[in-house]
Computed example of a mutant assay.
Amino acid sequence: MVLAKARYLECLLRAIKITTEKTHCKPLCMRMLCRPFTNIASADLQDVPKGFDGWEPVDDVYRIDRYPPKIRHISECLDDLRAQDKWAYCRKPEIYSDRTVNLSLLLDLTIPLKKKQVEPFIGMAAIPHKFKASNKVICFAEGDQVTEAMNCGAHMIGDEALINQILNDEFTDYDYIVASPSMMAGLLPLKKKLRKTFPSSKRGSVGVDMKKMLALYLNGIAYKVQTNIPHVNVAVGKLSLSNTQIEENVNSLIEAVCTHKPPAAGPLIRKATVSAFLLDGHQFKYESYVPGSCEEEK
Protein backbone atom coordinates (compact mmCIF):
# COMPACT_ATOMS: atom_id res chain seq x y z
CA MET A 1 0.00 0.00 0.00
CA VAL A 2 2.85 2.42 0.79
CA LEU A 3 4.50 1.69 -2.56
CA ALA A 4 1.20 2.26 -4.32
CA LYS A 5 0.76 5.65 -2.68
CA ALA A 6 4.33 6.61 -3.57
CA ARG A 7 3.69 5.60 -7.18
CA TYR A 8 0.55 7.73 -7.24
CA LEU A 9 2.42 10.79 -5.90
CA GLU A 10 5.19 10.26 -8.44
CA CYS A 11 2.68 10.27 -11.31
CA LEU A 12 0.91 13.29 -9.83
CA LEU A 13 4.10 15.34 -9.54
CA ARG A 14 5.11 14.41 -13.06
CA ALA A 15 1.74 15.62 -14.39
CA ILE A 16 2.05 18.91 -12.48
CA LYS A 17 5.55 19.45 -13.87
CA ILE A 18 4.38 18.84 -17.45
CA THR A 19 1.45 21.27 -17.19
CA THR A 20 3.68 24.01 -15.78
CA GLU A 21 6.43 23.62 -18.42
CA LYS A 22 4.18 23.24 -21.50
CA THR A 23 1.49 25.86 -21.68
CA HIS A 24 -0.22 24.23 -24.65
CA CYS A 25 -1.08 21.15 -22.56
CA LYS A 26 -4.44 20.85 -20.84
CA PRO A 27 -4.45 21.90 -17.17
CA LEU A 28 -4.42 19.12 -14.59
CA CYS A 29 -7.95 17.96 -13.77
CA MET A 30 -8.94 18.61 -10.14
CA ARG A 31 -10.62 15.21 -10.06
CA MET A 32 -7.19 13.62 -10.48
CA LEU A 33 -5.94 15.48 -7.40
CA CYS A 34 -8.86 14.12 -5.36
CA ARG A 35 -8.65 10.56 -6.71
CA PRO A 36 -8.28 7.94 -3.96
CA PHE A 37 -5.21 5.74 -3.92
CA THR A 38 -6.69 3.00 -6.08
CA ASN A 39 -6.01 1.50 -9.48
CA ILE A 40 -2.68 3.34 -9.74
CA ALA A 41 -0.61 0.57 -11.25
CA SER A 42 -1.01 2.34 -14.62
CA ALA A 43 1.31 5.30 -15.05
CA ASP A 44 -1.35 7.34 -16.80
CA LEU A 45 -4.12 6.46 -14.30
CA GLN A 46 -6.58 5.87 -17.16
CA ASP A 47 -7.43 2.19 -16.62
CA VAL A 48 -10.60 2.95 -14.66
CA PRO A 49 -14.34 2.74 -15.55
CA LYS A 50 -15.88 5.93 -16.86
CA GLY A 51 -17.42 8.06 -14.13
CA PHE A 52 -15.74 6.17 -11.26
CA ASP A 53 -12.45 6.23 -9.37
CA GLY A 54 -11.64 2.56 -9.87
CA TRP A 55 -13.02 -0.92 -10.28
CA GLU A 56 -12.97 -1.68 -6.55
CA PRO A 57 -11.55 -0.06 -3.38
CA VAL A 58 -8.32 -1.27 -1.80
CA ASP A 59 -9.44 -0.78 1.82
CA ASP A 60 -12.67 -0.53 3.83
CA VAL A 61 -12.93 3.29 3.88
CA TYR A 62 -14.30 4.67 0.61
CA ARG A 63 -17.25 6.43 -0.98
CA ILE A 64 -19.76 3.92 -2.35
CA ASP A 65 -20.80 6.18 -5.24
CA ARG A 66 -17.22 6.35 -6.57
CA TYR A 67 -17.07 2.64 -7.50
CA PRO A 68 -19.31 0.50 -9.72
CA PRO A 69 -21.80 -1.63 -7.73
CA LYS A 70 -21.17 -5.34 -7.27
CA ILE A 71 -24.14 -7.28 -8.62
CA ARG A 72 -24.15 -10.71 -6.99
CA HIS A 73 -26.48 -13.57 -6.14
CA ILE A 74 -29.15 -12.72 -3.60
CA SER A 75 -27.77 -15.26 -1.09
CA GLU A 76 -24.47 -13.36 -0.90
CA CYS A 77 -26.37 -10.10 -0.37
CA LEU A 78 -28.39 -11.61 2.49
CA ASP A 79 -25.22 -12.93 4.11
CA ASP A 80 -23.78 -9.41 4.03
CA LEU A 81 -26.95 -8.01 5.63
CA ARG A 82 -26.74 -10.53 8.47
CA ALA A 83 -23.06 -9.73 9.01
CA GLN A 84 -23.84 -6.01 9.17
CA ASP A 85 -26.79 -6.65 11.47
CA LYS A 86 -24.40 -7.96 14.14
CA TRP A 87 -22.59 -4.63 14.56
CA ALA A 88 -24.93 -1.96 13.09
CA TYR A 89 -26.24 0.48 15.68
CA CYS A 90 -29.96 0.55 16.46
CA ARG A 91 -31.64 2.77 19.07
CA LYS A 92 -34.15 0.12 20.15
CA PRO A 93 -32.59 -3.29 19.56
CA GLU A 94 -35.36 -5.04 21.50
CA ILE A 95 -37.88 -3.85 18.87
CA TYR A 96 -35.75 -4.32 15.77
CA SER A 97 -33.92 -7.48 16.80
CA ASP A 98 -35.31 -9.27 13.73
CA ARG A 99 -35.05 -6.73 10.92
CA THR A 100 -37.41 -6.71 7.96
CA VAL A 101 -35.92 -7.47 4.55
CA ASN A 102 -37.14 -5.14 1.79
CA LEU A 103 -37.11 -5.62 -1.96
CA SER A 104 -36.87 -2.61 -4.28
CA LEU A 105 -37.50 -2.98 -8.02
CA LEU A 106 -36.68 -0.10 -10.35
CA LEU A 107 -39.09 -0.32 -13.29
CA ASP A 108 -39.18 0.84 -16.90
CA LEU A 109 -42.80 1.63 -17.74
CA THR A 110 -42.22 2.96 -21.26
CA ILE A 111 -43.70 1.29 -24.34
CA PRO A 112 -41.35 2.30 -27.19
CA LEU A 113 -43.55 1.44 -30.20
CA LYS A 114 -46.68 3.13 -28.87
CA LYS A 115 -44.82 6.08 -27.30
CA LYS A 116 -46.69 5.83 -24.01
CA GLN A 117 -46.21 4.34 -20.55
CA VAL A 118 -47.65 1.47 -18.59
CA GLU A 119 -50.23 2.74 -16.12
CA PRO A 120 -49.05 2.56 -12.48
CA PHE A 121 -50.48 -0.59 -10.94
CA ILE A 122 -51.13 -2.20 -7.58
CA GLY A 123 -51.62 -5.86 -6.76
CA MET A 124 -51.34 -8.70 -4.32
CA ALA A 125 -48.68 -11.40 -4.41
CA ALA A 126 -48.98 -14.78 -2.75
CA ILE A 127 -45.77 -15.73 -0.95
CA PRO A 128 -44.81 -19.23 0.17
CA HIS A 129 -43.29 -18.21 3.53
CA LYS A 130 -45.12 -16.00 6.02
CA PHE A 131 -43.16 -13.52 8.13
CA LYS A 132 -45.92 -11.43 9.74
CA ALA A 133 -49.38 -11.78 11.21
CA SER A 134 -52.29 -12.52 8.87
CA ASN A 135 -54.19 -9.60 7.36
CA LYS A 136 -57.67 -8.72 8.55
CA VAL A 137 -60.03 -9.37 5.65
CA ILE A 138 -63.74 -8.51 5.48
CA CYS A 139 -65.77 -10.75 3.22
CA PHE A 140 -69.09 -9.70 1.67
CA ALA A 141 -70.93 -12.89 0.74
CA GLU A 142 -74.25 -14.62 1.09
CA GLY A 143 -75.63 -18.12 1.35
CA ASP A 144 -73.23 -21.04 1.66
CA GLN A 145 -70.30 -18.75 0.89
CA VAL A 146 -70.66 -17.15 4.34
CA THR A 147 -69.82 -20.43 6.10
CA GLU A 148 -67.01 -21.14 3.67
CA ALA A 149 -65.52 -17.68 4.23
CA MET A 150 -65.56 -18.02 8.02
CA ASN A 151 -63.95 -21.46 7.80
CA CYS A 152 -61.20 -20.02 5.59
CA GLY A 153 -60.28 -17.35 8.15
CA ALA A 154 -62.27 -14.24 7.19
CA HIS A 155 -62.09 -11.55 9.88
CA MET A 156 -65.84 -10.90 9.65
CA ILE A 157 -68.78 -11.03 7.25
CA GLY A 158 -69.92 -7.68 5.93
CA ASP A 159 -73.49 -6.41 5.68
CA GLU A 160 -75.31 -3.16 4.94
CA ALA A 161 -74.74 -1.82 8.45
CA LEU A 162 -70.98 -2.38 8.11
CA ILE A 163 -70.97 -0.47 4.81
CA ASN A 164 -72.42 2.59 6.54
CA GLN A 165 -69.86 2.29 9.37
CA ILE A 166 -67.00 2.21 6.86
CA LEU A 167 -68.42 5.23 5.02
CA ASN A 168 -68.61 7.20 8.29
CA ASP A 169 -65.13 6.07 9.44
CA GLU A 170 -66.70 4.31 12.43
CA PHE A 171 -65.04 1.00 11.56
CA THR A 172 -61.41 0.89 10.42
CA ASP A 173 -60.16 -2.40 11.89
CA TYR A 174 -59.56 -4.15 8.57
CA ASP A 175 -56.89 -4.40 5.89
CA TYR A 176 -58.71 -5.64 2.77
CA ILE A 177 -62.21 -6.31 1.48
CA VAL A 178 -63.22 -9.23 -0.73
CA ALA A 179 -66.65 -9.99 -2.10
CA SER A 180 -68.70 -12.38 -4.19
CA PRO A 181 -70.03 -11.06 -7.55
CA SER A 182 -73.62 -10.97 -6.26
CA MET A 183 -72.65 -8.49 -3.50
CA MET A 184 -70.89 -5.93 -5.73
CA ALA A 185 -74.00 -3.84 -6.37
CA GLY A 186 -74.38 -3.15 -2.64
CA LEU A 187 -70.72 -2.14 -2.35
CA LEU A 188 -70.89 0.66 -4.92
CA PRO A 189 -71.23 3.39 -2.23
CA LEU A 190 -67.71 2.40 -1.03
CA LYS A 191 -66.06 2.79 -4.45
CA LYS A 192 -65.16 6.45 -4.05
CA LYS A 193 -63.88 5.96 -0.52
CA LEU A 194 -61.82 2.80 -1.09
CA ARG A 195 -60.56 3.89 -4.54
CA LYS A 196 -57.89 1.46 -5.74
CA THR A 197 -58.52 -0.94 -2.85
CA PHE A 198 -62.14 -1.39 -3.91
CA PRO A 199 -62.82 -5.09 -4.66
CA SER A 200 -61.99 -5.96 -8.26
CA SER A 201 -61.87 -9.20 -10.22
CA LYS A 202 -58.67 -7.97 -11.91
CA ARG A 203 -56.89 -7.92 -8.55
CA GLY A 204 -58.46 -11.21 -7.40
CA SER A 205 -60.67 -9.70 -4.69
CA VAL A 206 -63.97 -10.57 -6.40
CA GLY A 207 -64.88 -14.18 -7.17
CA VAL A 208 -66.76 -17.29 -6.17
CA ASP A 209 -63.74 -19.29 -4.96
CA MET A 210 -63.62 -18.02 -1.38
CA LYS A 211 -60.82 -20.36 -0.35
CA LYS A 212 -58.42 -19.16 -3.05
CA MET A 213 -59.39 -15.50 -2.65
CA LEU A 214 -59.01 -15.43 1.13
CA ALA A 215 -55.74 -17.38 1.03
CA LEU A 216 -54.30 -14.65 -1.21
CA TYR A 217 -55.46 -11.70 0.88
CA LEU A 218 -54.90 -13.22 4.31
CA ASN A 219 -51.26 -14.20 3.74
CA GLY A 220 -50.18 -12.24 0.66
CA ILE A 221 -48.23 -8.98 0.44
CA ALA A 222 -49.45 -5.89 -1.38
CA TYR A 223 -47.27 -4.03 -3.87
CA LYS A 224 -47.75 -0.63 -5.49
CA VAL A 225 -45.83 1.33 -8.12
CA GLN A 226 -44.55 4.66 -6.83
CA THR A 227 -45.16 7.21 -9.59
CA ASN A 228 -42.41 9.73 -8.76
CA ILE A 229 -39.63 7.35 -9.81
CA PRO A 230 -41.31 4.15 -11.09
CA HIS A 231 -40.38 1.49 -8.57
CA VAL A 232 -41.87 -1.09 -6.20
CA ASN A 233 -40.68 -1.23 -2.61
CA VAL A 234 -42.12 -4.03 -0.45
CA ALA A 235 -41.17 -6.23 2.50
CA VAL A 236 -40.37 -9.84 1.58
CA GLY A 237 -39.23 -11.41 4.86
CA LYS A 238 -37.20 -11.22 8.04
CA LEU A 239 -33.51 -11.86 8.62
CA SER A 240 -34.52 -14.84 10.77
CA LEU A 241 -35.76 -16.62 7.63
CA SER A 242 -33.30 -18.69 5.65
CA ASN A 243 -31.82 -17.46 2.37
CA THR A 244 -33.87 -20.01 0.45
CA GLN A 245 -37.14 -18.86 2.04
CA ILE A 246 -36.46 -15.18 1.30
CA GLU A 247 -35.37 -16.05 -2.22
CA GLU A 248 -38.63 -17.91 -2.85
CA ASN A 249 -40.63 -14.91 -1.58
CA VAL A 250 -38.65 -12.61 -3.90
CA ASN A 251 -39.30 -14.96 -6.80
CA SER A 252 -43.06 -14.91 -6.14
CA LEU A 253 -43.16 -11.13 -5.95
CA ILE A 254 -41.15 -10.59 -9.16
CA GLU A 255 -43.41 -13.01 -11.01
CA ALA A 256 -46.48 -11.12 -9.78
CA VAL A 257 -45.06 -7.74 -10.83
CA CYS A 258 -44.17 -9.04 -14.29
CA THR A 259 -47.78 -10.02 -14.96
CA HIS A 260 -48.51 -6.28 -15.47
CA LYS A 261 -46.10 -6.02 -18.40
CA PRO A 262 -47.83 -5.41 -21.76
CA PRO A 263 -46.62 -7.52 -24.72
CA ALA A 264 -45.38 -4.41 -26.58
CA ALA A 265 -43.24 -3.20 -23.69
CA GLY A 266 -39.57 -4.01 -23.22
CA PRO A 267 -38.02 -5.47 -20.07
CA LEU A 268 -40.05 -4.24 -17.09
CA ILE A 269 -37.38 -4.46 -14.35
CA ARG A 270 -34.21 -2.39 -14.63
CA LYS A 271 -32.61 -2.97 -11.23
CA ALA A 272 -33.32 -5.08 -8.13
CA THR A 273 -32.02 -4.23 -4.67
CA VAL A 274 -32.41 -6.03 -1.34
CA SER A 275 -31.95 -4.21 1.96
CA ALA A 276 -32.99 -4.27 5.61
CA PHE A 277 -34.00 -1.67 8.17
CA LEU A 278 -31.10 0.81 8.68
CA LEU A 279 -28.74 -1.48 6.71
CA ASP A 280 -27.10 -1.10 3.31
CA GLY A 281 -28.80 -1.99 0.04
CA HIS A 282 -27.27 -4.60 -2.28
CA GLN A 283 -28.02 -5.11 -5.97
CA PHE A 284 -28.53 -8.72 -6.99
CA LYS A 285 -29.01 -10.69 -10.19
CA TYR A 286 -32.75 -10.82 -10.77
CA GLU A 287 -32.89 -12.22 -14.33
CA SER A 288 -33.35 -15.82 -13.20
CA TYR A 289 -36.55 -14.89 -11.31
CA VAL A 290 -38.21 -13.13 -14.26
CA PRO A 291 -40.77 -15.26 -16.14
CA GLY A 292 -39.95 -16.15 -19.74
CA SER A 293 -42.41 -13.62 -21.13
CA CYS A 294 -40.55 -10.79 -19.37
CA GLU A 295 -36.95 -11.85 -19.93
CA GLU A 296 -34.62 -9.53 -21.73
CA GLU A 297 -33.40 -10.61 -25.11
CA LYS A 298 -29.95 -11.97 -24.75
Rank of each mutant, 00 (worst) to 15 (best):
D85T: 07
D79E: 08
E248L: 00
D173R: 06
L33W: 07
C152T: 15
K271E: 11
G54C: 11
P199N: 07
G143R: 05
H73L: 05
A179S: 15
D108L: 05
P112A: 08
I157F: 05
C11V: 06
H231N: 14
I95S: 13
R31M: 14
V137K: 00
D173L: 07
L33P: 08
A141F: 00
R14Y: 06
P93R: 13
G237V: 01
P189R: 11
V208N: 14
L113P: 00
I40S: 03
K17A: 14
C139W: 00
F37I: 09
Q226P: 01
L218P: 07
S200Y: 11
A43C: 07
V206A: 02
L241K: 06
K191N: 05
M150G: 03
K115Q: 13
T172R: 11
V61G: 03
T20Q: 13
R66D: 05
V146Q: 07
E247D: 11
P36D: 07
H282M: 02
S205D: 10
G54H: 09
I95N: 12
E296L: 10
Q226F: 13
K136C: 02
P128Q: 08
L188V: 15
T227G: 00
K22V: 13
N249F: 10
M1Q: 09
D59E: 04
I221L: 11
L113F: 01
I16V: 14
V48D: 04
L107Y: 01
T244E: 12
E287M: 10
R63Y: 13
D79C: 03
L3W: 09
P112G: 10
D108I: 06
P230M: 06
M183A: 09
A125M: 10
N219S: 12
N102L: 09
N168E: 12
F171V: 02
K192V: 10
G207T: 03
N135E: 01
N249H: 06
I157V: 11
L33F: 13
N164Q: 15
K115R: 14
L113Y: 00
R63N: 15
L107T: 01
L239N: 02
G158K: 03
I74L: 08
S200V: 05
K22S: 14
P36H: 10
L13N: 05
Y286G: 05
L278N: 10
L268P: 02
A256Y: 06
V137L: 02
A154I: 05
K261W: 09
E56C: 13
R82A: 02
I71W: 00
N164V: 15
R72W: 02
D173E: 15
L12G: 02
E287C: 08
H282C: 01
M210R: 00
R14I: 04
L109F: 03
M210Q: 02
I95V: 15
K5Q: 07
L241P: 05
A222I: 01
L106I: 09
F171C: 02
Y223K: 04
E296F: 09
E287L: 10
E10P: 01
V225T: 12
A185D: 12
Q84A: 09
S288F: 06
T244P: 00
E297R: 10
A161C: 08
G51A: 13
K211S: 12
V178D: 03
L12M: 12
D98E: 12
K212N: 14
G220S: 10
L214T: 08
E21K: 15
S134V: 07
K26H: 07
A41K: 11
E94L: 12
P230C: 05
A126I: 11
